[in-house]
Simulated scan of single mutants.
Amino acid sequence: MKTVEQALEILKNYAKNKQEIETVDIQFCLGRVIAKDICSTVNIPPYDNSAMDGFAINHHIGQAEVEISQRIPAGTSPKPLKENTAARIFTGAFIPQGADCVVIQEQCEIKDNKVDIFAKAVIGQNIRKQGEDVQIGDIVLKKGQKIRPQDMGMLASIGINKIAVYKKITVAFFSTGDELIEPGNELTKGKIYNSNRWTLLGLLQTMNINILDLGIIKDDFQSTKNALETASKKADIIISTGGVSVGEEDYVKSALENLGELMMYKVKMKPGKPFTLGLIDSSYFLGLPGNPVSAFTVFNLFARPFITQCMGSNYQIQTQEVITNFAWNRKGERREYARAKLINGKAEIYHSQSSGVLSSTIWADGLVIIMEESIIKKGDKITFIPFNQWGC
């Protein structure tokens, strides 16, 4: 059984980006992973321009009444500024030659074709200098970054409409268990609704990947083997929920060993101990536990970073230190990830930490990490992992 740190290190070592590069329009690039550093070929701003509506002058004029010699809206090309005059200028407009500052209109008074400037002028005030945001040759976005809405705006601001990204990876997933039925069907004796399928689908949909949903697989060796074999021919990564424990009706692990290689089995954590990593031909296999909370937790702590790294991007789980408003009096050999909620800035835990209580993930807004052999007192500091980083 691996520790959490050992499991993360093993996953990191195996997570390789094997995707080809394609070019996409920025209209379709949100969430994609950049395949090459993107450098600017222009300065932003491209020229000195006014940060405010007002009057462009040379600071030597000082506080004086002067002639308004020209009007400069944004998008026009100004003439050189006549000596001892002012130019009416608007936000974003080109600073004329001879002007070295802009006095905002609230500090001036217009009188016919003249302006009375009654504020002190300082060189460079209210002027956005050429290249003060981005200069020619600057790397504006780096290889491996996932593109966000603000990145799309930056690409447009430097004149780029197409970029090189890694092709999307394909993740296939299925659930195992003869007790499972889909929502919409009558719940008969001995059956339960398949919640894991829909939780996992939602989690995968937050990652901007191609998803292959194989549904529910029967609890027998041949059906499990066939599902794995089919998925390995179509997907870069295969994920299953259930069937990786040690029960007589759990066939995923044995089918995996028959078809490929088992590289890791079991992690010293709770919930989520029977997490599995394997390889079938060139497709990775991630086996998640069947209990709903275990599947949710293990996906976000292990599968999400692994998938992200296979996409060509780096991944770091975001954590924060908080104060506890609960006590934890039982020492455990395994690291525990308890569903928790921040109330008035302090962490409280759900009344049931059973791995089958999916409602705890609805109530919670994160997980607190209870280290091995730990006792927690009210007021102690603890590490909190917020759900919102996962879109949860």
Rank of each mutant, 00 (worst) to 15 (best):
M1D: 08
N13R: 14
Y14H: 14
K18F: 14
E20F: 10
I21C: 03
R32S: 11
A35Y: 05
D37N: 07
D37Q: 04
C39W: 01
N43V: 06
P45I: 05
G54K: 01
H60V: 13
H60I: 12
G62Y: 06
A64L: 03
P78H: 11
K79M: 14
L81G: 03
L81D: 03
E83F: 11
A93R: 05
D112N: 15
I123N: 06
N126M: 10
Q135L: 13
K142E: 04
D151K: 02
S157F: 08
I158F: 09
S175D: 15
L180A: 06
L180C: 04
E182Y: 14
T188W: 00
L203S: 02
Q205W: 09
N208Q: 10
I211L: 10
L214N: 01
G215S: 08
I216D: 03
Q222T: 14
S223V: 04
A227I: 00
T230L: 08
K234P: 00
D236F: 12
I237H: 05
I239S: 08
V244W: 09
E248N: 02
E249W: 12
S254A: 13
L256Q: 01
L259M: 11
L262M: 15
M263D: 10
M269N: 00
P271I: 10
P274G: 08
F285P: 01
L286F: 08
L288P: 02
F296L: 12
T308L: 13
N314V: 01
V322F: 09
I323G: 01
R330K: 15
Y337K: 03
A347D: 01
H351F: 14
S354K: 11
S359Q: 10
A364R: 06
A364H: 04
D365Y: 04
G366L: 07
D380T: 05
